[in-house]
Structure formats: structure tokens, C-alpha cells
């Protein structure tokens, strides 16, 4: 199967002297291997090599330069003894849970609304998706301005007569994660809607007809029949949104820069700061390794379900 596409020269080789294993590995299908060289280099050097390098040096006491000696789990012990890291992790979990739930729920609701044979469907779709085309920096800066306590929405509504209106989330350590959430949902829910809508439209129309004949109300059909049928789309959305959340960085930099204080710090920012301005590479690498671990924990069950399951079904 794997060599299905190389029958022409492969056949010739078996009749003549069979070349050595090394020669075959190098020269069989040579143009394809040369063409795929950038991919192989990327995989070996970046995705495998750099990952191993990062994990390895996270166990050293590298400070300004990665030349330190092996210190076991010292960096990790320090990491979890640092309040800034712990705040970052707590923030990520809180933000991540809220973001995941709201993105999926809002995305699904929007997709259902769009799916109701409405007028101006493409206009509504365009409006919902355009934020996804913008960068997190633009997103963060616009919302920073809207939520600006002195001249933004809060002041505007107060000036319009709603004098005790309060919307200072961006400057309020307790509420700043919700500020982040508003901006994040603005950016990403349209994308989730597109995914969900594709899932909804993929449901066999005869299922809807059968449900109508059975007299099942529309909402019940969505909840009991269509939603469970969209498992594949839901899982895909979950993985994409989840891995996006772990990466959360640009938006925080633009919207709050981790503030007020350290109340909106996230791991990606912690790692970045230690690597490039904190002068403590070991700490940064240990943080990065923890991020990697998180993604592996998200990915492995998914990969098992998607690909492990497929093998059994066929």
C-alpha cells in the first residue's frame, strides 16, 4: 500500500540484482524524497528536535544562556512555587473553561439561527465571521478602547444618564478575565458557527422529514437527534478551540498586557517573558514543557477516538 505508486522501477529492480537496503531507502522514489525534504527537515529539526531540546533544557539551570547543568525537577518546583505562574495557570483554566463552553454554545446557537431559512443569511454570516479575519492584536486594542473606563462605554452610558453604570472590567482584577472573554468570543464564535453550520447542513434532510412525520418539535430534533449526530464536528471544534486557548498570548498582550498587576497573566506570556526578557531560560522552558503536556493531554484522547476508533470500525 505504502509503495503503491512506485511500481515501474520497483519491478525492474526485483529481476536485476536487488540493491542493498540502504540504497533502496535513499534512492527509491528519489524525486519524491527530495521534494519532501523541507517537510522532513521541518519535522525532524523543529517538531521533534526542538521539542526534545526544550524538554531537555527544562531540566537544567540555564539562566541567560542554555548551557546550564542538569538539575532535575528544580525548575518545575520553582515554577509551581511562583505565584505568577500559578496565577497564569488558574487564569488559563478559568478562561479556558468559560471560553470553551461559551464558544461552543454561542457557535451552536448562531448556527441554528442561521439554519432557519432566514432572509439575508449570507449578510448575517459575513457579520459574524469577519472578526475572525482580524488579528488578536486588533481585537484586543479595539476592545481595550471600548472598555476604557475613562472614555469608553462606561463613561458614554454615564453621560447618557445611566449614572451608576459600571463597566471597568479591564481595570478590575476580579473581572479582567471576563473582559478577555468578551474579546475572545467576539473573535472566535463566528468561526465556531461556521463549523457547526457545516455540521448541521451535513445532516441528511430525510432525518428532518422523518422527525416531522414523527411529530418531534424542532428544538427537540436539534437536541435529541441532530446534536448527537454532529459528534465529529463537535470534537473537531473542541480540539481546535482547546489548542487555541492554550496558545492564548497576543490577545492578552494587546488587551491587558497581563494587568492589572498580574491578574490576567497566562502561561504563554509567562514563558515568553522568562525566555526573552526575564533572563531565566530554564524557567521559560519548564513552562513551555508544561504547556506541551497540556496539549498532549487534550490531544491523546482525541487522536485515540478519531484514529484508533477508525481502525476498529473498518
Amino acid at each position: 500500500m505504502a509503495d503503491a505508486a512506485v511500481p515501474l522501477d520497483a519491478g525492474a529492480e526485483t529481476t536485476v540484482n536487488r540493491p542493498s537496503l540502504l540504497k533502496r531507502i535513499l534512492f527509491n522514489n528519489l524525486p519524491a524524497k527530495i521534494a519532501a525534504l523541507p517537510m522532513m527537515v521541518t519535522v525532524l529539526v523543529v517538531f521533534v528536535g526542538c521539542t526534545i531540546w526544550t524538554i531537555y533544557y527544562s531540566f537544567t539551570n540555564s539562566k541567560l544562556l542554555p548551557t546550564g547543568k542538569f538539575v532535575g525537577f528544580d525548575q518545575y518546583e520553582r515554577l509551581f512555587a511562583t505565584s505568577r505562574w500559578n496565577v497564569s495557570v488558574t487564569n488559563l483554566i478559568a478562561y479556558g473553561a468559560m471560553s470553551l463552553v461559551f464558544t461552543l454554545v454561542v457557535g451552536f446557537i448562531l448556527a441554528v439561527l442561521i439554519d432557519q431559512k432566514i432572509r439575508f443569511e449570507s449578510a448575517f454570516r459575513t457579520i459574524m465571521l469577519y472578526p475572525f479575519a482580524l488579528s488578536f492584536i486588533v481585537t484586543g486594542l479595539v476592545w481595550q478602547w471600548i472598555m476604557n473606563p475613562t472614555l469608553g462605554l462606561q463613561t458614554t452610558l454615564r453621560n447618557l444618564g445611566w449614572t451608576n453604570f459600571s463597566f471597568d472590567w479591564i481595570a478590575n482584577p476580579r473581572m479582567v478575565l471576563f473582559a478577555l472573554l468578551i474579546a475572545g468570543l467576539w473573535h472566535g464564535t463566528g468561526f465556531c458557527m461556521v463549523l457547526m453550520l457545516a455540521g448541521l447542513r451535513g445532516v441528511d434532510e430525510e432525518i428532518w422529514k422523518a422527525a416531522r412525520i414523527d411529530g418531534i418539535p424542532t428544538w427537540r430534533t436539534y437536541v435529541s437527534i441532530v446534536l448527537p449526530m454532529m459528534r465529529g464536528v463537535l470534537v473537531t471544534a473542541l480540539v481546535i478551540i482547546g489548542s487555541g486557548i492554550v496558545r492564548l498570548y497576543d490577545l492578552v498582550v494587546a488587551l491587558t498586557n497581563g494587568g492589572p498587576g498580574i491578574s490576567s497573566e497566562v502561561p504563554a506570556k509567562y514563558v515568553f517573558n522568562y525566555m526573552f526578557s526575564g533572563g531565566n531560560i530554564g524557567q521559560g522552558l519548564a513552562g513551555a514543557t508544561m504547556m506541551l503536556l497540556t496539549v498532549v493531554i487534550i490531544m491523546v484522547p482525541w487522536a485515540y477516538l478519531e484514529f484508533g476508533g477508525k481502525g476498529r470500525r473498518t
Binding site: E206, I207, K209, A210, R212, I213, D214, I225, P228, M229
Partner: peptide
């Protein structure tokens, strides 16, 4: 009248069975 009130049953080309329900649930759901 709505389809459910017309006194009809319908069988579809693609079967249109509810995939995540057992046969028993499929029959009894409506």
C-alpha cells in the same frame, strides 16, 4: 395539517434512522 396529524407513516430512501438511538428507541421516539 402538520405531517404528524395527517395519519400517515413514511419510509425514506436513506432510511433516515436516528443514528444514536437503538432500534427500540427509533421505533418509540415519536
Amino acid at each position: 395539517l402538520e405531517p404528524k396529524d395527517r395519519g400517515i407513516g413514511m419510509v425514506f430512501q436513506s432510511y433516515a434512522l436516528y443514528p444514536q438511538m437503538t432500534v427500540e428507541r427509533n421505533l418509540s421516539f415519536g
